[in-house]
């Protein structure tokens, strides 16, 4: 804790006047949650923007390019919000990319079966993708809590199963039949110059930050990651809560699936293999600890911009885009190392 933090939270201490302590306490708590690696995410982000911006201002700093970076980051962000909750409990969800594909496939099948371009068809598609993602998430939760599989193995299993299932349902060929109204609406529509998909990510980020920071659900999520035995002894229904958290992550993957359909107007069954890693990187860069107990949805939103900026900027610089994967791997290892060292220093106090 730096002195700055303590000064900031001091007014909340002895129960002073009116609504101010509440707000400053909440802010202080939020700030504390985000501090540390979140500032790292911001620094990395600003450095990347400065480097790419300075090198190729005419290509990089255009409204069009920044918009496409934001759209890319928005899809990572939706997945990474769910990942933030899961990782705050000390777990991990490797299956998000596969669940996204599977949910998208089911969504397209339902929308094709209903036919048409009307809002009812679109709504049915949304409900289907969300419900399918939710179901996979519940399965992950059950595997982790009831079958007592380590989260890494449980979600590796569903990663494989959902990915394979999507190929079975489509015979390995991408499905067409995404309604054009969905593509032109959610896919390409804008409000105030900002794409709908980005607005969606912003909205989900705010909602996620509120849930994690201000509600009992969020407190239990952090408690389980911090000391699961303490949670149990305090009467927290740990298994039920974990199932809810994995279900939330699956639900968000379902929403991301719908966005994915709108963006690409197809099911992209061959893609999204690296989505789990991107979401984990975004989450860890944003200040959520791989070891649980600490999480920040706002940090995750910043963190999800980094892989997007990297892949975009590397292309503009003229390097092969594959370098992005190398860079992401290096960043992940580095950030987790820093987190690990911080944790160990803390416990040795």
């Amino acid at each position: 804790m730096t002195p700055g933090t303590e000064v900031k939270s001091a007014p909340a201490g002895p129960g002073e006047d009116g609504p101010r302590p509440l707000r400053s306490a909440a802010l202080a708590a939020a700030w504390r949650n985000m501090k540390g690696t979140r500032s790292l995410a911001l620094v990395v982000l600003l450095v990347l923007l400065a480097v790419f911006g300075a090198a190729y201002p005419d290509n990089f700093l255009t409204a069009y390019n920044l918009r496409s970076v934001a759209i890319e980051a928005a899809s990572y962000c939706v997945l990474a919000i769910g990942m933030t909750f899961v990782m705050t409990t000390g777990g991990i969800d490797l299956s998000v990319g596969s669940v996204l594909i599977f949910s998208g496939v089911v969504g397209v099948k339902v929308m094709s079966a209903l036919g048409g371009e009307g809002p009812l068809t679109l709504f049915a598609g949304l409900v289907t993708t969300m419900a399918t993602g939710l179901a996979w998430g519940v399965l992950n939760g059950l595997l982790v809590t009831k079958a007592k599989l380590p989260p890494l193995i449980a979600t590796l299993a569903t990663l494989s199963a959902a990915g394979g299932g999507a190929l079975v349902l489509t015979n390995g060929l991408d499905l067409r039949g995404v309604p054009d109204s969905l593509v032109s609406g959610l896919g390409f529509g804008r409000f105030l110059g900002i794409p709908y998909t980005v607005w969606l990510a912003i909205g989900l980020t705010i909602a996620g930050a509120i849930v994690l920071g201000l509600t009992r659900f969020g407190t239990y999520t952090r408690t389980i990651g911090s000391n699961v035995e303490a949670a149990r002894r305090a009467g927290v229904a740990v298994d039920r809560h974990l199932i809810k958290v994995y279900a939330l992550c699956g639900l968000l993957a379902g929403i991301a699936a719908y966005v994915n359909l709108a963006r690409f107007s197809t099911t992209t069954v061959g893609g999204h293999t690296g989505d789990n890693l991107q979401a984990i990187v975004a989450t860890v860069l944003g200040g959520t600890s791989l070891f649980g107990g600490v999480g920040s949805v706002l940090g995750t939103a910043f963190g999800s911009l980094i892989p997007a900026v990297l892949s975009n900027g590397l292309v503009i610089i003229g390097l092969q885009p594959f370098w992005q994967q190398v860079a992401v791997g290096a960043v992940l290892a580095g950030v987790v190392y820093v987190d690990h060292v911080n944790r160990r220093r803390r416990t040795l106090r």
């Binding site: 407190t219 303490a230 949670a231 305090a234 009467g235």
Partner: peptide, 19 residues
Amino acid sequence: DLALAPDLDPAENLFLGRE
């Protein structure tokens, strides 16, 4: 072992399960 959640603040620990 005290059964405290180290990442939470004292008030959150005090009210754990009884928020």
